[in-house]
């Protein structure tokens, strides 16, 4: 058990963003997180990695209670994440971006070994040739890969991926799916938010579903898709319901 979320709640003013959310994640697996827009998915990520302290409940990571710890302490314990809207360090080079992950992540390297790790990780995500460019000059797909590289350079035990497929074209999506699999095969546990359903269904070992901040379903992808509560939740958002029911190919979704 690498991650255990126990009864987590989070409120913003009058908005109850998360209500008593509990689930566990077994090491070495890929857990998918779905839910309509505004269901609290990114908030859940933010509570897990310490950006927000929850109002109630606990987050246990590798047998340690990390509830309410600041994000840098969570990161140093081996939990890395990417952002839904990419946030590269624009005026630094691609290599420097990745070195930040290596220098301040779990292994806390000095700069020389960090540069070495950065080059290794950049080769893995296919950005080796861009290492000396400024991060701000990359295109969206490259920035997504950079985010991934930065997270991987921290050598995390658990990686939170927030919609890494959004905004990519079909060939970029299938390349990214391969990358995610390879990361899992390296032994890194993955917890991912994804709107591209088909991709999520093929990648995830398990899926949990949030709706209005509550966990309404959990199980294998097949079980979850057929859960009447999930279908009902998505029917509130007809566009996504359509996608889910029609199971279209990824290209029409991006």
């Amino acid at each position: 058990m690498i991650l255990e979320v126990r009864g987590v709640s989070k409120r913003f003013g009058g908005l109850q963003a998360l209500t008593n959310v509990s689930f566990t994640l077994t090491a070495g697996r890929i857990l998918g997180l779905i839910g309509p827009n505004g269901a609290g998915k990114t908030t859940l990520f933010n509570v897990i990695n310490g950006v927000y302290a929850p109002d109630g409940g606990q987050v246990i990571f590798r047998e340690e209670d990390i509830t309410g710890k600041p994000p840098y302490e969570v990161a140093q314990r081996g939990l890395a994440r990417t952002y839904q809207v990419v946030r590269p360090l624009q005026e630094l080079t691609v290599r420097e971006n990745v070195m930040v992950g290596a220098c301040f992540g779990r292994e806390k390297h000095h700069k020389a070994p960090a540069a070495h790790i950065a080059d290794e990780v950049l080769a893995f995500v296919g950005l080796a040739k861009k290492a000396d460019l400024l991060a701000g000059s990359l295109n969206v797909a490259e920035k997504k890969r950079l985010e991934m590289a930065r997270a991987l350079a921290a050598r995390p035990y658990l990686l939170l991926l927030d919609e890494v497929l959004a905004g990519l074209n079909p060939s970029e999506i299938s390349a990214m799916i391969d990358t995610v699999r390879q990361i899992r095969d390296q032994g890194i546990t993955i917890f991912m938010i994804e709107h591209v359903m088909q991709a999520l269904m093929t990648l995830s070992d398990e899926v949990i579903v949030l709706d209005y901040g509550e966990l309404i379903a959990a199980g294998t992808p097949e079980e979850v898709v057929e859960d009447p509560k999930v279908i009902e939740a998505y029917l509130g958002d007809p566009k996504i319901a359509q996608r889910l029911l029609a199971q279209e190919s990824p290209d029409s979704l991006a």
């Binding site: 950006v51 840098y72 990161a75 994440r81 952002y83 630094l92 930040v100 301040f104 806390k108 930065r150």
Partner: peptide, 16 residues
């Protein structure tokens, strides 16, 4: 430098 570019992202990467 990471803080200068994006302080929140830097903290998430482990920068204290």
């Amino acid at each position: 430098l990471a803080i200068r570019e994006d302080e929140d992202a830097a903290m998430v990467m482990g920068v204290k």
